[in-house]
Nucleic acid binder design. Structure first.
Length: 566
RNA sequence: GGGCGUGUAGCCUAGCCAGGACAAGGCGGCAGCCUCCUAAGCUGUAGAUCAAGGGUUCGAAUCCCUUCACGCCCGCCA
């Protein structure tokens, strides 16, 4: 849809530039190949500022250049471009009626929501330590990760979502050690694990000599002691079952889980040591194996193996990344800001081995008004707690708005609204922004929120439901400003998905969703559908259906349920 | 101390990477709209020296430098 229009504009503009003999100046960073300086604009469907770029080279005024280019543009009257204007230095391109008509037809037919990307992509996200429940800090990882998975799938990619299970770290050894001292109390698995973990940490802090017991467990596990392995397996699976349950509430599912220990047991971590030693950049210092990354801009050496012979996280992670590289065209890791340095070192080490590097999506932290969260100290708001709270609030809202409905309906709607609200609240903010968790904002269901979008979808569904089947329609009757704005927004779905997928920025799709819902609500207010004259009525019904389909595709891509009624 | 990130109306955020047409939304404030397809909606209005200072440019929220504030990291933790 909109991408077709974009391509048509590009080719018109390129031809015109050729005709004028204007050579495009070298732009230093044309990241997305947009050397024609095209952008969507309030003044046109697409606008180009290319004249500004050409001005210094041609030594002429931008407005004159724009005029010159305009005169060289040849419209054949059959494509998606209707007309071009030069507004001073700006070249404004407008889509044709044919374009809007076909956008309505395609969207109404509901078969136009998948892009043409074909890469195999592995997205690793969440990967929280199985030592407690997901807290509101982890949600950011999970929601950004899952939304990226959905966006890339929508763009056409073959995506596998992976959870990298840390079963070899100290935190887990502490859990296993703690389970030997305290019983799990029968509460939800991840929460029960956290209680043991928190208590074990208190004991360790109070009595430093106890640390030896934990070290011993780690050595036994890395050495492959069967009895110890069984204890770890059990503890990790137990905690993981609770985490999975929470992810399910967030509408998140991983395609596969990969345990760190797999990469020790199959010898691939040992091969990492060999490969890195072969670079000549490693050293044995006091019995530990260290990698010198100063050539890659890292001051401190990276320790790969402890002096007791056990491997460190990064070493195992290197093996995991080599494994992923063999099975994908792209690897994407979603990581918290505290992983910035270590992920830079990981990439550097992969470079040294001649292996492909992952693309890292970093998100900044979510903190509480009282400070940062900590599983170890038991200082966190769990995702379960948040979802329960938001669901309760949503139930109150539904009850106030739809008192006539039965409890089952209101419960079901509250659940979907809460899920949407939480996901949208996380994904609408750009990942590099640190945020402070705010109960009031989390419980607000107004315009800048999922319920706003879900509500638009429900309104559209309700109209279609009341109308029943409708016959032939003529989209060219849709000429009102609100109608055109809505069609334009619908047509831009492919653009929104492509940009979000290319730049790995889920929040762009959140913005698009808000704009789409807004366009629909404005249309809804200004244009009666069921009461409209014959002809207009069918055309508007088709537009409502197109909008409903587009809203549904958008919500689905955000992992938010599209409700028929709320 | 070094590295990375952030700083946009009372509050929360988009725009910044690839500089251009009036700095865009939401919350909160004020004023309107339910004899009409779900008012979780729509319309209008007030509110911003885009942290501060300097520089580059025809043009800077956007690029460069300096300063300040906040966050994260600098472990034989993950």
């Amino acid at each position: 849809m909109f991408l077709d229009f974009w391509r048509d504009v590009e080719s018109l503009l390129r031809d015109a530039l050729d005709r004028c003999g204007f050579l495009l100046p070298e732009t230093d960073g044309k990241v997305n190949g947009n050397d024609l300086m095209l952008e969507t604009s309030p003044h046109a469907d697409l606008a180009s500022t290319i004249s500004f770029r050409l001005a210094p080279v041609l030594k002429r005024k931008p407005a004159q250049i724009a005029q010159k280019i305009l005169e060289a543009i040849v419209l054949d009257g059959r494509g998606t471009v209707d007309r071009v204007e030069a507004m001073g230095p700006y070249l404004n391109f407008f889509a044709s009626r044919r374009f809007f008509d076909s956008a309505v037809l395609e969207a109404e037919g509901d078969r136009c929501w998948t892009g043409s990307m074909t890469e195999r992509v592995i997205v690793e996200h969440t990967s929280a330590n199985p030592n407690g429940p997901l807290h509101v800090g982890h949600i950011r990882n999970s929601v950004i990760g899952d939304t990226l998975v959905r966006i890339l799938r929508r763009a056409g990619c073959d995506v596998e979502a992976q959870y990298y299970v840390n079963d070899m770290g100290r935190q887990i050894a502490i859990v296993v050690w703690g389970c030997g001292r305290y019983p799990l109390d029968g509460s939800k698995a991840d929460h029960a694990t956290a209680k043991v973990y928190i208590q074990a940490n208190k004991d360790l802090a109070a009595e430093p000599g106890l640390k030896e017991g934990v070290d011993r467990l780690m050595q036994l596990y890395e050495g492959g002691d069967p009895e110890t392995a069984e204890k770890f397996r059990e503890a990790v699976n137990y905690a993981l079952s609770g985490i999975e349950e929470t992810l399910r509430r967030l509408n998140i599912r991983h395609d596969s889980y990969h345990w760190e220990s797999e990469f020790v047991r199959d010898g691939s971590t040992a091969r990492i040591f060999d490969r890195l030693e072969a670079t000549g950049l490693t050293d044995w210092e006091e019995g530990s194996l260290q990698l010198d990354l100063s050539g890659e801009g890292f001051e401190k050496k990276l320790v790969l193996k402890r002096s007791d012979g056990t491997s460190l996280y990064t070493a195992r992670d290197l093996a995991y990344h080599r494994w992923k590289a063999e099975r994908s065209d792209r690897m994407i890791d979603v990581l918290g800001a505290d992983h910035k340095l270590i992920s830079g070192q990981l990439k550097a080490a992969l470079r040294l081995m001649g292996a492909r590097e992952p693309e890292i999506v970093i998100f900044e932290f979510v903190s509480l008004p009282t400070g940062s969260m900590s599983t170890r100290k038991g200082k966190f708001i769990s995702t379960d707690e948040l979802l329960d709270e938001v669901e309760a609030q949503a139930f109150k809202e539904v009850t106030a708005r739809r008192p006539e409905e039965g409890e089952e309906f209101r419960r079901a709607v509250a659940k979907e609204v809460a899920l949407g609200a939480v996901r949208y609240d996380v994904v609408r903010v750009s990942p590099e922004k640190a945020t402070v968790f705010d109960w009031k904002a989390a419980l607000d269901f107004e315009k800048l929120s999922a319920p706003f979008i879900q509500y638009s979808h429900a309104r559209a569904s309700s109209i279609l439901d009341k109308a029943g089947a409708f016959g032939d329609f003529d989209p060219s009757l849709l000429t009102g400003a609100e109608e055109i704005d809505l069609i334009r927004k619908i047509s831009q779905f492919d653009l929104a998905v492509q940009v979000a997928a290319r730049e790995l920025k889920p929040h762009l799709l959140a913005t698009y969703a808000r704009e789409l819902a807004e366009a629909f609500n404005q249309f809804y207010r200004s244009s009666p559908v069921l009461e409209a004259d014959p002809g207009i009525k069918e055309a508007r019904l088709a537009l409502v259906k197109a909008a409903r389909n587009c809203l549904r595709a958008t919500l689905e891509t955000l992992g938010i349920p599209a409700l028929e009624s709320m």
